[in-house]
Write a protein that binds this DNA or RNA. Structure first.
Length: 897
RNA sequence: GGGCCUGUAGCUCAGUGGGUCAGAGCGCCGCGCUUACACCGCGGAGGUCGUCGGUUCGAGCCCGACCGGGCCCACCA
């Protein structure tokens, strides 16, 4: 007996070999309204609901990327989310219980800014919660409200407004995803700023802290002066930045002359702590150990040797300031130099004149730059250097690379501050090796994306800085005692129990303290910082999987199977998730990572947001249909950039319509109430058997491709087969399937064979297409089958092979070539394909001879050959089938050939 | 400077352990209202596979160099 329809628990598919009763094929088929109709049904039936009684081995869990709800979705999202959905649908049909949640990322700067502008407020954690608060503005979208005009509100109020605002976005986003046909379980959504997500982030942090993986340190670090927050290595972006080399004289204290250095940051002159040159540099060897005096400010600094100094850069001797760049930090640390910071966290030169500037002139010069931005301070310093003659020549303009916060527009400065870190291998070789090993374990699709992971981990130069000096976000669940002098005891943090989470240390009180002790000597103070957004989103598997509150669920879904994401956030989201999982669970967070490429506009540039917004995703879906857009997305391989191509969507739409039409046709034979018998034993005709043999190969190959995350290959195989099926097989088999040659009232064996083969083929093809074209396939499925195609089992080749017997697929191609030869005769004669042929000889290559002969009667019928159709073997080397000596039956007025 | 990806018909792309691999679709040209489909069908014309070397009996497919695209990292004196 065949097993072409293996039973699945939720799929009331036909039992092997049984008849599928009752067809209900519409007279006219259409894609119009198909998305709303089926999305509604799927929702009503809970078709994609996750069965949480499933065991881990049965579950396929997906760590869906939560889109930023304060941005807008663009075609790139549609593209990559389709890839994931194809996987989800395939796995579901393969019998897996698919855990496919959707998250909304409403934590972070984009949401913070949007809430500020939309409601005219700003977050001030020092304020108490006001339950009755109503924002001054509603929907001041587009206009940004000046900071001075923003009403300060408590963090809790701010979070509430965030949730209020993003709720509207989530409705829009969900509508789009539904329209696109994502088979998400909409009963399982999460928000990254929700109480649950905050609690997970805090709990994970507390555990990192308890294990010694998280720590606090006061150290120089990269600082964004606009946002006034520390920034992590992963958030850096190197950009070109105009600057100028200034050649500046330092005066030797022994009075023997001057040393010239070159700098692009003359405004940092008051922060200079040393001059540094390479130990082997002949030019400066004599100076090592001596001191020089800084111009303008008259501070005596040593000339030192350090191998990190590069003789061919600038003058070969550099001024080391605290801090101009990361090399300065290295020198400062390794040469044990003093800290002389002059730059404030707001990016301005500190107002108070520092005590290391002792001379009257120096103090005067400093007063002239105090409080200025780096830009103005630079002008002032340069003017001063000109005045004193310490500027040698004119500044030489240069283009240099500077580090920027990816969301910022001013170069990062280096500022000393107290920050939280989580170990990520950046300063611990053993941990780095472990994390590199995790990367090796993880199956990247495509695999070369693994290199990006390895490069990043290999190049880390510090631990993960997780604290941010912002106000909206997940606060650190930490308080500190104040000693009797009111000094903060950072070394003795007060921590909440896990049951108390989430906490907000700015409004909650640590155990054994009362609110009135906040900020007073002997009392306590809350940690003012919030976590980096990645510190929360690195925990999406834990948040979505119920790590904290639902261990039963968590055990069924974690470690997850798949992380789909973009290649640009391998260093951030992917890596940080691996770090958290490794530290907390001692495992990878998922076994596979599917990396989608970019969408490029027709100019081969990365599709910009502005362009992406011109073509809204919803507009695309409405114009072309969801299946069509999905087809375009599914045509692009993972990890490969794809062009935004409307043409490809049109092809997809055509395919979807073809599926409807061809299916309608394949189901049109026999009386309407006559059952479709899906019995391979009925398939006896050589052509039918060959078709099934080909289809069986396609099923095997497509299945293997999808297993390997190669949805493109699977689609291509299926599609190619399907078009041949339509253009050749359906045409060839048409008359026989109608029962053209059967006696009145009888269904001949050939007819039954064709009908069974058509049914079996349709049955498999619909399921093969279902992951990519969920709407069209479901529509067709509903005409003749019970249940949803999306819960039907993935096709297997075994039943098809039973029907195929020992037939080889090539017969279909041979017969198709023969039919094409007859068509060509008509095409060249410029007559209708319906024109009858009264005589022709098919000259076929030897290799095709048997195939053509096996299907000759079908070829005759499809080619409308009424008389003799001869068969001859072509000479060696001839290609293709040629019809010779064709005589067409032409209308009287067209003349004869 | 280091690394990854990529360069095949006008366009978008397949070409699977080197030997019918020179392909598909779109576009183009011509034809056809053939009762599944005119949101269609049929037929046809398009390429010395970026360049130059090398390995091999044989190379889009392997190796090297170069040229052209895209991206990541490093480079802030």
């Amino acid at each position: 007996m065949s097993d072409h329809l293996p039973s699945a628990p939720s799929a009331p598919a036909a039992a092997p070999g049984t008849a599928v009763p009752g067809r209900s094929v519409p007279d006219r088929v259409s894609l119009d309204g198909i998305e709303e109709r089926w999305d509604g049904r799927w929702t009503a039936e809970g078709l994609y609901a996750f069965d949480r009684t499933a065991e881990r081995a049965q579950v396929f869990s997906i760590d869906t990327p939560p889109p930023t709800v304060s941005g807008s979705l663009h075609v790139g999202h549609v593209f990559s989310y389709t890839h994931t959905d194809v996987v989800a649908r395939f796995r579901r049909m393969r019998g897996a219980e698919v855990f496919y949640p959707m998250g909304w990322d409403d934590n972070g700067l984009p949401t913070e800014r949007r809430v500020q502008n939309y409601y005219g407020v700003r977050c001030d954690p020092s304020l108490p919660y006001d339950p009755a608060f109503e924002p001054p503005l509603q929907g001041a979208e587009g206009k940004s409200v000046r900071a001075a005009d923003q009403v300060p509100i408590s963090r809790r109020n701010f979070v509430e407004l965030c949730e209020r605002l993003t709720a509207e976005d989530e409705v829009q986003f969900e509508a789009l995803w539904r329209r696109l046909g994502l088979s998400v379980d909409w009963g399982m959504t999460y928000q990254t700023i929700s109480a649950e997500a905050r609690a997970v982030a805090q709990q994970a942090f507390l555990r990192n802290l308890a294990r010694g993986e998280a720590y606090q340190a006061e150290a120089p670090g990269l600082w964004d002066v606009t946002f006034q927050t520390a920034v992590a290595q992963a958030e850096l972006e190197a950009r070109d930045y105009p600057g100028a080399f200034h050649r500046v004289a330092f005066h030797r204290t022994d009075g023997t002359g001057a040393v010239h250095i070159e700098t692009t940051r003359p405004e940092l002159l008051p922060a200079c702590v040393a001059l540094v040159a390479h130990p082997d540099d002949e030019r400066y060897r004599d100076l090592f150990g001596t001191t020089v005096r800084t111009p303008l400010f008259g501070v005596e600094v040593p000339v030192l040797a350090h191998p990190a100094a590069e003789p061919d850069k600038g003058a070969g001797i550099a001024m080391c300031c605290t801090f101009g760049d990361l090399t300065d930090v290295q020198w400062w640390r390794e040469l044990d130099l003093p800290t002389r910071s002059v730059l404030g966290r707001d990016g301005r030169i500190l107002r108070d004149t520092p005590d290391w500037i002792a001379t009257d002139e120096g103090r005067e010069r400093y007063a002239a730059v105090a409080g200025k931005t780096t830009f103005s301070a630079r002008e002032a310093v340069v003017a001063g250097l000109r005045e004193t003659g310490d500027l040698d020549g004119e500044p030489v303009a240069t283009q240099r690379k500077a580090n920027f916060f990816e969301k910022g527009d001013k170069p990062l400065e280096i500022v000393t501050s107290r920050q939280w870190y989580i170990g990520n291998g950046g300063r611990d070789e053993a941990l780095r090796a472990e994390l590199l090993a995790r990367g090796t374990e993880l199956d990247f699709h495509p695999d070369f994306m693994k290199v990006r992971y390895e490069n990043w981990v290999g190049g880390l130069n510090g631990d993960w800085l997780v604290s941010r000096q912002r106000f909206f976000g997940v606060p650190f669940p930490v308080w500190y005692p104040l000693d009797e002098h009111g000094e903060v005891r950072h070394d003795a943090p007060l921590l909440p129990g896990e049951d108390a989470l989430p906490v907000d240390p700015s409004s909650d009180v640590p155990a054994a303290y009362t609110e009135d002790q906040r900020g007073v000597p002997g009392g306590f103070v809350g940690d003012p910082d919030i976590m980096d957004t990645w510190a929360t989103s690195s925990l999406t598997p834990q948040i979505a999987g119920g790590w904290r509150t639902d261990p039963d669920l968590f055990a069924r879904v974690f470690p997850m199977d798949l992380r789909p994401q973009g290649q640009d956030i391998i260093r951030t989201w992917l890596f940080s998730t691996v770090v958290r999982s490794h530290l907390e669970h001692g495992s990878l967070p998922w076994s596979d990572a599917a990396i989608s490429g970019w969408i490029l506009d027709p100019d081969r540039k990365k599709m910009s947001k502005s362009k992406g917004n011109v073509v809204t995703p919803m507009g695309l879906l409405e114009e072309h249909g969801s299946d069509a857009v999905r087809y375009w997305a599914a045509s692009a391989r993972l990890g490969t950039d794809a062009a935004f191509e409307v043409g490809q969507m049109k092809i997809g739409r055509r395919l979807a319509i073809k599926v409807l039409n061809a299916s309608k046709f394949a189901l049109s034979f026999g009386a309407p109430d006559e059952p479709v018998v899906l019995d391979p034993a009925l398939v006896v005709d050589p052509l039918d058997r060959a078709m099934l043999a080909g289809l069986a190969d396609v099923v095997d190959a497509a299945t293997a491709a999808l297993e390997a995350y190669d949805h493109t290959r699977a689609l291509e195989l299926t599609e190619t087969f399907f078009w041949t099926f339509c253009d050749d097989y359906l045409e060839l088999v048409k008359d026989r399937a109608y029962g053209a040659g059967d006696a009145e009232g009888e269904v001949g064996a050939g007819t039954a064979s064709a009908r069974a083969a058509l049914g079996l083929a349709l049955d498999a093809l619909l399921r093969l297409f279902a992951p990519v074209l969920p709407f069209a396939t479901e529509e067709v499925w509903s005409w003749w089958r019970e249940g949803s195609v999306h819960r039907a089992p993935w096709p297997t080749s075994a039943g098809l092979r039973t029907g195929a017997g020992d037939a080889v697929p090539a017969v279909v191609g041979a017969a198709g070539s023969a039919l094409a030869a007859l068509r060509k005769v008509k095409s060249e004669a410029k007559v209708s394909m319906r024109t009858e042929i009264e005589h022709a000889v098919l000259v076929v290559p030897a290799a095709l001879r048997d195939g053509v002969e096996a299907a000759l009667s079908d070829v005759r019928a499809a080619g409308r050959v009424t008389g003799t159709l001869g068969l001859a073997v072509a000479p060696e080397g001839a290609e293709g089938v040629v019809a010779q000596d064709a005589r067409l039956v032409l209308p009287a007025d067209a003349g004869t050939r």
